[in-house]
Amino acid sequence: MRKSNVEIPLRSTGIAVVLLKKFENEYKVLLLKRASAVLHNAWCYIGGSIEEGETAWQAALREIKEETGITNVSLYSSNTFDQFYSPIENYIYIAPVFVGFVNAEQDVNLNHEHSEYIWLSFHEAIEQATMPGNDEVLKFIEKHFVKTAPSEFLQVGK
């Protein structure tokens, strides 16, 4: 009798955004503390769902505005992804990560999804981020978007 293989489904229904802001010649990362039941009290960067009719980068801009009130941002595709496996539902979730450069005059105004926010150095953000894998995303972004200038080819939403 021949056994058939079963595939683990992939779901890609959301986005993630790492916001960067320059403070005295150093880029810092915005981390938000979750106030919702899912990931309660976890420190993370922006994440959210893609709504019908949106592209991933349009969802990123909407989520930035909804979660932080920030509207003046230069957005880039990072060419990296957030990913995790759900053992309860047996699927792999994957989300494109975007990088947003925030203008200095932009202030954060949190919505109900978060209770606190903090701007941290990359080293501090890597230590503070709650979810496994966030550290690798942050290291990747520091290497490709801070230590070297991002390619104009990756800029979206111009």
Rank of each mutant, 00 (worst) to 15 (best):
H123K: 10
Q155C: 04
T13V: 06
L20C: 07
N79Q: 12
I15A: 02
F23R: 09
I15V: 15
F101Q: 06
N103C: 08
V73P: 14
E116I: 02
N79E: 15
T80K: 03
Y93H: 12
N41G: 05
S151Y: 00
F101N: 07
Q58R: 15
E142L: 02
K3S: 05
L61T: 13
A60K: 10
N90I: 11
V146E: 00
Q58L: 09
H123S: 10
Y85K: 10
R11K: 07
L31S: 08
R62K: 15
I88G: 13
L32W: 01
V99L: 14
E124Y: 01
P132E: 07
I126T: 03
I92T: 12
K21R: 11
E67V: 15
A104K: 15
A35S: 14
V38F: 15
I92K: 13
L138E: 02
L32A: 02
I8A: 03
E52V: 12
G157V: 00
F101I: 04
Y27C: 01
S86I: 08
A35P: 05
Y93M: 10
L75Q: 10
T130C: 07
E24R: 07
V6H: 01
S74H: 09
Y27I: 01
K158P: 00
V102M: 04
H112F: 11
Y76W: 06
A129M: 02
L154A: 05
S12F: 00
N5L: 04
